[in-house]
Nucleic acid binder design. Structure first.
Lengths: 229, 229
DNA sequence: ATATTTTGTCATAATTCTGTAACGCAGCTG
DNA sequence: CAGCTGCGTTACAGAATTATGACAAAATAT
């Protein structure tokens, strides 16, 4: 599965360098030059991770981070702060604002890649696995199969992709828009409520084995697959 | 029966040594001296495994690995990295890039063989065997015969290769494109729907012995041979 | 050279899947 | 409690995808 990363930095040099480096490592890159356009981008596409410059022309990176972490729709997206200075104090404030990690400029491509992978491993532990297992429900990505220990579950293409996505990111809430972007594709125009219907179909398929309770509705925010009961 | 291995290394000594060793162990060897020619080779033939040197003159082995693992066409080919140093850090980066295993130079022929077999066992458990047996259906790769315990099944050449491939990779879904690439050859232009027809012919041939149910359709994804019922 | 198989494509039938709309209930707000 | 918004459900017709049988060309065998 391709990993989307949003880089927010006002210096185009930095943006380009990072984009070049990360593209070569197989990531898909989105870029924004300030907080305002970052928020716009977030409205369209949901990235898997955000690289956020400490200093930005409009809203500071720290404030943006705090704001994102306070928004139910974005709170689960990991953030790595980019900072020019390496003061202890900054680090603390950054992590305080909700950043998951931080890295001081200048940094090497290798270090950046390593940090990103480390953070991703924490936030989407199932992304690369062949078989995702959440609480007894096993999804075989290569075999395109879903089963519990004693029953096989039949899903249509969309329901499979939906469950696959949710299981790859357990315990995270996704809005209908985000699900449409990530599962249907970003340039498709489809009614938001259609997601409800597919959620319904997925739940129905999981009902016989009582796993439908894992698919939870978060009113006003979207849906989530819960790892525990 | 014959397992193809691609060795990518810029030192001809290493290439020759590895080729010699592995040929004697019954593998068929392809060689490339840099990433560019490796990609060219991959355009012609899809090997069953790739041995990749860490350091290459053009694109580094790590980057090539990442690139291959990001390409749907090659992502399933297991990669073993060859590295001169044995630093822990390298190992991590290698596995991070998608390598399935790694081995440090210099290595013994025996160790190389063992690693290759271990990796192949995971990705294609039946590949090397003379007779593949899945759930009572036996396919003799050398004798080009297929039989159940009490009946022999007659297949045309294409159906045989199709069944052979599917039985070598049980419980995995393959898209029509993948099947065309790996059974018909990489640079043949054939209608995708043609695969359906051959699947149909294969099923028909397996019907009398009730083994047609093993060949399953996965809507929107491709076909799969299921090991269990 | 002739008979027999095998192959790739089509056209058509048979299935399965999808996105919407519509209706009703649940939860929150004031 | 009334009103509003969000969500769950169902039904359905149109789309997509797959199954199947027929056929002519190509390849093999006799």
């Amino acid at each position: 599965m391709s990993v989307n990363i949003l880089i927010v930095d006002d210096e185009s040099d930095v943006r380009e360098m990072v984009a070049f480096t990360l593209k070569r490592q197989g990531f898909r890159i989105l870029a924004a030059e300030d907080s305002k356009s970052a928020l716009e981008k977030l409205g369209e596409i949901l990235p898997d991770l955000i690289l956020l410059d400490w200093m930005l022309p409009d809203i500071s990176g720290v404030d943006l981070a705090r704001r994102l972490k306070g928004d139910e729709r974005y709170e689960d997206i990991p953030i790595i702060m980019l900072t020019a200075r390496s003061e202890e104090d900054d680090k603390i404030r950054g992590l305080d604002a909700g950043a998951d990690d931080y890295i001081t400029k200048p940094f090497s491509p290798r270090e950046l890649g390593a940090r990103i992978n480390a953070v991703l491993r924490r936030s989407a532990p199932n992304l690369g696995k062949d078989i995702i297992n959440v609480n007894g429900l096993a999804l075989d990505q290569k075999g395109h199969r879903v089963r519990t220990h004693d029953a096989e579950i039949n899903l249509g293409p969309t329901e499979f992709k939906l469950l696959q996505f949710l299981m790859a990111h357990p315990d995270r809430v996704f809005s209908r828009t985000q699900l449409l972007d990530r599962i249907w594709g970003s340039n498709v125009y489809i009614e938001e409520r259609t997601v409800d219907v597919h959620i319904r179909r997925l739940r129905k398929a999981l009902e016989p084995v009582e796993y439908d309770r894992m698919i939870q509705t978060v009113r006003g925010a979207g849906y989530r697959l819960s790892a525990e009961e």
